[in-house]
Amino acid sequence: MVRITFNRQLCKGCGLCAEFCPRGIITRGEEFNAQGFLSFSAVPGGRCTGCGACALMCPEVAIEIIHPEETRGLAV
């Protein structure tokens, strides 16, 4: 199963990840991070394919994606 992590502190709430997630599983959180932004993250539930669209678009390098084995993730 793909492991995807969002660095809540680096996120500035720009929403580009959510805009381009083909599964629409990324949403804005409720509480502010230390910088005063509502950070984004993937809704848990395992529907992430690890396509990387969010990570490609993230201006803060805040999204890390680890595939269990080196499978080709991107299907954009």
């Binding site: 502190q9 680096l10 500035k12 709430g13 720009c14 929403g15 580009l16 932004f37 690890g50 990387g52 990570a55 490609l56 678009m57 993230c58 201006p59 803060e60 390098v61 999204i63 890390e64 994606i65 680890i66 595939h67 080196e70 499978t71 080709r72 993730g73 991107l74």
Partner: peptide, 26 residues
């Protein structure tokens, strides 16, 4: 091609000062 994503070695750990959504970070 981008299977895994992480912070490149050629970037320091310093967070960017750029505005939210700015393309500089990409």
């Amino acid at each position: 091609m981008p299977g895994n994503f992480g912070r490149p070695q050629a970037l320091t750990s310093n967070p960017f000062h750029y505005c939210p959504g700015c393309s500089h970070g990409i």
